[in-house]
Amino acid sequence: MLNVEAVSRRFARDGGAPVVALDRVDLTLREHEILALVGTSGCGKSTLLRILSGLDRPTSGRVALDGRVLSGPTPEIGMVFQEPRLMPWLPVRENIRLAVLDQPRAIQDQRITAALDRVGLNDAAEAWPKALSGGMAQRAALARALVRQPSILLMDEPFSALDSFTKTALQDHVLDLWGRGGFTVVLVTHDLEEAAVLADRVVVMRGDPGRVHQVVEIDDPRPRDRTGAEVQRIKRELAVSLEG
């Protein structure tokens, strides 16, 4: 699994002390959990996720995947960004193919079809990205991440640009995929209800310098009732942890 060991990340700032986006963060992912990362804006959530993905490197400390130091992106770790980031010049199917270019053609097609199936986008396989709704585009992005069959799926506020109905539907969908998939999810969110409904653990971060403030374990069995007392209680607990 993924181990974050004393990871710090500083960004140089013109004329002044560097920004300490992450300050000696330790974190160990568990097999097949959903971990939510919450915290105020600028506290380093995206920075941490980018380091976990291999897109960015820590200034000090290290990230190890199954004991090996992570030195860049790997097929075992998938990423869904806040925006779908589809190539506008490729139809949905070809966008997803980008994630499996290293496979033989027959396997590509087979896996793409399966991924489209899983996110319910079979009918839109040949569509241009410009023709997709926000929710569909984000599903396509999800399919592109899943088609590589990662063991860890990182998501940076993947639902934040969606209307609440689409958001809820997609949350349930991700939960369903996760339930069948066996992968681990790290989800950055600023929506405490999203964290309370989806997560096994919630890491509450505080910024300046970016540190892990508290880790909240959630034992509430799934499926959880969004309006139920337990979800509301966890939301309150998270809110207190964020502000207190």
């Binding site: 993905s53 980031r85 290293d102 592109r144």
Partner: peptide, 27 residues
């Protein structure tokens, strides 16, 4: 840059990045 990151995260070679991301984007 955001699309180039998609290429990186998916392990595209330099050639594939040029072909699928940079050339169509500048066309």
């Amino acid at each position: 840059r955001k699309l180039v990151e998609v290429a990186r995260i998916n392990g595209l070679s330099l050639w594939a990045t040029v072909r699928y991301v940079l050339v169509p984007g500048t066309l």
